[in-house]
Design a binder for these strands. Structure first.
Lengths: 228, 228
DNA sequence: AAAAATAAATGATAATTGTCATATTTAGAA
DNA sequence: TTCTAAATATGACAATTATCATTTATTTTT
């Protein structure tokens, strides 16, 4: 089994402030697991007794609305951590984490996390900063959902997907989403999302290659996202 | 000047876990201030060097959109605290806090807060829980903004306003908001908010007495908020 | 108290977005 | 591969929501 001390993933998240001893303790107790595409890593309302550290693969964080519709709140990728909010607040998980592709994940038991929180103030502070940043993003999202038309939100989402996942060797945004998932991200009907994507393609702002999306004119998208 | 040890407001927030000595330290360094209706307690993008503890009065937390529209993110009242997110994350304030009526507020310098965070793990944990809860609410808000029609969001907002502020001696929701502020909460045009309020009154679900709103049929509102 | 400014209300109309129907394409299973 | 199911795409239309214009009511100022 791999060793947390040598894992490069911790460079990208709050775990980077842990001492060698703490990482060794994590290594001894952690379990590695494979989550298949479509499977849930966490489920809304369930309790969780540890922290997930994503090695590889992507997932979506979603919320099921009272009307049965799925809302995508956030995308998560290798290097990110999941479950710390629930551990810290001692509350059930608030979102579903569903794999968009096969994932490799490490699970570190709650006890070890709590011990490091107690002993290592810098670690707790990093977790807090992570949650604070999420809150800041969430507030921006509320504002945009409430005030911007669907077209602007789609443009914004495409830019943010490229920001998060980067591009592949053909300059396409490096994540595979269904049109329905795109619609559930921006909060609109699937048909509306499809139509607006087609329009953006017609205008030469993006290119559509199957499910792959390539941004051709980032400035134009930025303008659209701001209502011009 | 009043003494934090005897202040009943701390019962309602994270300050309740502070020791007598900590509260005495707060008392020695705190300043009390009056914020007039319409004035800003905090301003988006500014830095803040302390924590506000609301003694009395109500304010709105808002965000200015790229299109110049104001989005109300949250309402705050006596007993709530403000500014802890910014202190913990060491980032500028993310929202404007604007007084809806005259407010009495205590300001506790950052240094004292950080000292208590270091010495009193239960205090830090309570601050984290507060931020976590806000994140949880924000995620729910994203989902509702994205997926629910304006009418449902208005019903939801009226219920939540009564939940937050309670009712006065005439059973009206105990906060004065302009129609524009209601519109900026649910994310719609002022005229649309006015029209939908009129409809709810016509249907006997609420009563409108000037700016005061009285909920007549809570179940009906709940049903509307869920799309029925 | 009167005048002026602001807020609320409402109608008319336009723009946006959702729903339903259906065709076409793509992906997965036998 | 071939069949089948699912996803994508598009048109037609309906519902929702925004914008503009105007009137009425309420607040604020003088």
């Amino acid at each position: 089994m791999s060793n947390c001390s040598h894992c490069i993933m911790k460079r990208f998240n709050a775990l980077k402030t842990l001492t060698h001893d703490e990482l060794e303790r994590f290594s001894d107790h952690k379990t590695s697991l494979i989550i298949k595409k479509g499977e849930n890593l966490m489920t809304e309302g369930n309790s969780i007794n540890g922290l997930y550290c994503i090695q590889d693969g992507k997932c979506k964080l979603t919320k099921l609305n009272t009307n049965g519709k799925e809302q995508i709140i956030k995308f998560v990728k290798g290097g990110d951590i999941l479950g710390h909010r629930s551990i810290l607040s001692e509350e059930p998980v608030g979102l579903n984490a569903t794999a968009l592709e096969d994932m490799r994940v490490c699970f570190i038991p709650k006890g070890d996390i709590l011990e490091s929180i107690k002993d290592n103030p810098q670690f707790s502070l990093n977790l807090i900063k992570n949650i604070s940043l999420q809150l800041s993003h969430a507030n921006t999202a509320i504002s945009q959902m409430a005030q911007k038309p669907v077209k602007d939100r789609l443009a914004e989402t495409l830019l943010s997907l490229e920001e998060i996942f980067g591009v592949d060797n053909e300059d396409c945004i490096d994540v595979i989403l269904t049109r329905e998932e795109i619609a559930n991200t921006i909060g609109t009907a699937t048909e509306s999302a499809i139509r607006l994507l087609s329009n953006l393609k017609k205008d030469g702002v993006i290119d559509l290659l199957g499910k792959k999306i390539k941004i051709l004119n980032k400035n134009a998208l930025k303008n659209i996202s701001e209502g011009y």
